[in-house]
Design a protein around this nucleic acid. Structure first.
Lengths: 218, 218
DNA sequence: ATTATCTATAGATCTATAGATAATGC
DNA sequence: ATTATCTATAGATCTATAGATAATGC
């Protein structure tokens, strides 16, 4: 499995006190994230960010070297949060179909809660410098990797015999993206389904229940 | 079904000759689309667009009122193209599972060919003025609507008994988005699957073939 | 003395338009 | 005369930094 690289310390700074660097960068990222969600990366100015972070524009540039660095701080912060929440949501012991149902529910609820953040990543990744784009994609892959692990365990039990190595990988991507779908089609889906109903229906699809007796709680 | 509004004539202009307006706007959109794909909307300047469209910056502003108008021309042009291709790809007479397989194949191939355009819509829709964002979403919905129609026909034959009105709608969204997934995860999927293999596996998932005898051509 | 922070602004854009010029049609 | 096109630039940004000031620690 891919190792997570802590991104917050990749950016050079003149400031000696490293705790202060971490603290200020968090301030900056927290301020920027709200502004980027509202107005997008390019329409947000560094001055707005400095103001929202309650530091001067001069200080801001002691902690980052360019505006793009701020976007990287933001993307990294979002991924840490998503990964933390998804990892915590993973079922500990259960196996088989029931485990998959549980994972889907938890993950989709995470997507539901973090809609704005996920959308931001989709919109603004391309604005990052190439080497950091790559980092963002690695983060995406690591989250999908969590689903690969779970599906592999389920495959062991033989409850979903259609799953082989190739299809597990793709199924994991499908899960990831169908979670994201709730965020970027929410303007429509949110008017027609509750998140609970959405989860129920997508679980049905993922388990391939067409034409079979449906679980009573669906 | 939603009616398509031809967007190219929504933007006011001082130019009297309407054929010329159509022609120049196509020039502008064609030039802008390449630049937006490469550098994004905000990093592309109106001067670059004018130059690539082979008109002066002054003339450019005779055909549009703001830079955002250009983005709308671009989004509208992309949607027209996607819809044209998808509509043409719809199977004419076939019913049942075979029809679904065919639709999926054709649609996914369209996504494959139009990757860059689809990605651009995802990235830049938010940069449009609100009333045009709405238009873009309507266009998205109309494409999904094509799948709803086809799934409804298949449901009539009773070959996929799990499909009721609610799940047809969501299944159509899933198809749409799993096509898009090929475009925005291509950096990974493209290294592990051919588009043909991707289509085969996704078709398997959509038809809920897990654990059933698999079609020989898959 | 050293480190962190601030103000003020250089320098480099970029959009949009005014006003001049060229092309077209009667 | 009318319509389309062009050049030149006003006006409004915005990022990033230089150099001054304040805070901290010995």
């Amino acid at each position: 499995m891919l190792q997570r690289q802590p991104g917050i310390n990749d950016i050079p700074t003149q400031i000696k006190n490293s705790e202060l660097v971490t603290k200020r960068r968090r301030q900056i990222a927290d301020a920027a994230i709200k502004l980027f969600i509202k107005d997008g990366f390019h329409k947000t100015t560094t001055r707005q960010i400095a103001k929202a972070a309650e530091i001067s524009i001069g200080s801001l540039y002691e902690y980052i070297a360019s505006k793009e660095d701020i976007l990287y701080l933001v993307c990294d912060s979002i991924h840490s949060e998503v990964e933390r929440v998804v990892t915590n949501a993973m079922p500990k012991v259960k196996h088989g179909r029931q485990a998959l149902k549980e994972v889907l529910e938890k993950y989709f609820l995470v997507c539901h809660k973090m809609s704005d953040f996920i959308l931001l990543i989709y919109r603004e990744t391309k604005s990052l410098p190439p080497q950091w784009q790559k980092r963002v994609l690695e983060n995406e892959l690591r989250i999908t990797g969590l689903f690969v692990e779970i599906l592999a365990k389920i495959a062991e039990t033989g409850e979903l015999p259609g799953l082989n190595e190739r299809s597990i990988d793709l199924a994991a991507h499908n899960i990831t993206v169908l979670g994201h779908m709730w965020t970027f089609r929410r303007w429509y889906l949110g008017r027609h389904y509750t998140i609970e109903k959405y989860i129920a229906l997508q679980t049905e699809f993922m388990l391939g229940l067409y034409g079979q007796a449906q679980d009573q709680e669906l």
